[in-house]
């Protein structure tokens, strides 16, 4: 069950609409988004824009790697780490 307002809850509509446009109706947390073609090279940049705008984080060029965007789970983990780092930065100001 996805918690409303969670990272995953905000992420899934984006992922599912991309998946459905490729004829894929179900995406599990560990499915490879790149190997399945749900996210291609341009799609990664659109995903990055989506994450930057939705979660107010900055994603550097060097962070755009498969490890971070391979699956729903890795994206969720990556965003959580970005938000935590952002929180720590704000707390130290």
């Amino acid at each position: 069950m996805t918690e409303p307002g969670s990272i995953k809850a905000q992420l899934m509509p984006f992922v599912m609409e991309n998946a459905q446009s490729k004829g894929i109706n179900q995406v599990s947390d560990d499915d490879s988004l790149t190997a399945s073609g749900i996210i291609d090279s341009l799609g990664v940049f659109r995903l990055v824009s989506f994450l930057e705008e939705t979660f107010a984080v900055r994603i550097g060029d060097e962070e755009i790697v498969n490890d971070n965007f391979e699956s729903v789970r890795t994206i969720e983990k990556f965003v959580a780490a970005k938000l935590a780092a952002k929180g720590e930065k704000a707390a130290t100001r």
Binding site: V15, M16, E17, N18, S21, D40, R46
Partner: peptide
């Protein structure tokens, strides 16, 4: 066009 959900790019965002 892809950034507007057109072409062969997913139309979600």
């Amino acid at each position: 066009a892809g950034f507007h959900g057109l072409s062969d790019v997913p139309s979600a965002a």
